[in-house]
């Protein structure tokens, strides 16, 4: 089983140092090989659990969190907004 670690890392937004790629490849392969032994199953069943039909709460307007409370954990804010690096020229 060949796993393109660089491609997966790009999708996952993770930097895997070049020298760690072989190890990561080997680890992922050994985990994935556990899966190879799974039987082929053909089923028309839904992937959702029929016994656990989720219950929605009534859609009622309620007080929410205060903005300044929610921004307290943010690394950088300005004028009550989250700051990010410039994304458009």
């Amino acid at each position: 089983m060949e796993i393109d670690v660089r491609h997966i890392a790009k999708l996952a937004k993770l930097e895997i140092p070049e020298q760690e790629i072989p190890k990561m490849e080997q680890e992922l392969s050994s985990i994935v090989s556990m899966v190879e032994k799974l039987p082929e199953l053909v089923s028309k069943d839904s992937l959702l659990d029929p016994e656990n039909t989720m219950e929605l709460r009534p859609d009622v307007v309620q007080p929410s969190f205060a903005r300044d409370e929610m921004l307290k954990n943010a690394p950088d804010t300005a004028a009550g907004c989250l700051m990010v690096p410039k994304v458009v020229e």
Binding site: I8, A9, A12, L14, I16, E27, I31, V32, V35
Partner: peptide, 13 residues
Amino acid sequence: VKRRIMLGTYVLS
């Protein structure tokens, strides 16, 4: 955590 994220990303890719 990175290993699990990588594995999860792979199986969903």
